[in-house]
Simulated assay, not measured.
Amino acid sequence: MKIICPQCGSEHVVMESDFLLRCPYCDSRIMVETPAGTPAMVRTAVTEESVRRLFPPGMVVSMVLRFFPYLETGEGSSRSRIPCFSQPWQELDSYTPPDGDRLVFDESMAAPGDIMPLDRDLLESTGGRLVLHPFFVVMLRLQGYSEGMLVDGVSGRLLGEVPLKEDGRTDDLSLEKLFLTVLALGMLVSVPAYVLGSTLDLSEIPRFWFSMATVLFMGAVLFLKWKSGR
């Protein structure tokens, strides 16, 4: 498939799934014509900060906003939308995104890499209007590997469940284990610390508080070790 840049007149060979391109000669954006006419873009309604709050602290590695093409057919109550992107996304197989606020799409609204590749064969055979829906693609840091998840950019809905660590524990459970470890170690060192306080000349400082300070110091060391290993 070939197109002509309307700005500089250069000719480009493009993939059938391309929708929005950038001319390498004049840097202008080129929208590849679709048989359904001018597409619509759904306005993003949630922020990156609200998406991050869906996951435990420190789990999100990266987050990008991508627009997924849907093909809309019918009118009113009979209106339906079917996925029209060429790459398979299991999370979206049975998901129908909400309507949201729509804008008439033009080249300034998104960069070429922000739009998922089209299934142009489906578009040409089915007809209808192309609607670009926003999703956040979120990469999560797990133990030994990374995993991607989708969040609807209009409703803020998380598609799927937040995965557990490889050993089946979340960060909250790890923190609980850390607390129990510190408590057990505190009980073990309280007696030696009390004896040490009796040996030293600590008449101005109660030996009890000396013991507690020792326990707190050990707890801080263990917490920093746990924090650095996340």
Rank of each mutant, 00 (worst) to 15 (best):
L188V: 09
I4N: 05
G58I: 13
W89L: 08
I3H: 02
L130R: 05
L54Q: 02
R66L: 15
L183G: 03
D106R: 10
F105P: 03
F208K: 14
Y95A: 03
V151S: 05
R169N: 13
S190K: 10
V138N: 01
V13L: 12
L164Y: 08
Y194D: 03
L123A: 09
L159Q: 01
K2E: 15
T34M: 15
E75Y: 01
L158W: 03
S78T: 12
A110E: 06
S10R: 15
L164G: 10
F105C: 06
V154S: 05
S125D: 04
L178K: 10
M212Y: 13
S174I: 12
L118P: 15
P57C: 07
D101V: 11
D172M: 05
E161M: 09
R53N: 08
V189S: 08
P57N: 08
M116I: 08
L20W: 01
R81W: 01
G144M: 00
R141V: 01
D93N: 08
F210P: 09
F67N: 12
R66D: 08
F105L: 11
Y70D: 02
I82M: 13
L123R: 05
S77Q: 07
G76C: 02
R29L: 10
H12V: 08
S17Y: 08
F85K: 02
S77I: 03
M59Q: 15
E16W: 12
P97L: 04
V64H: 13
K227M: 11
V42M: 01
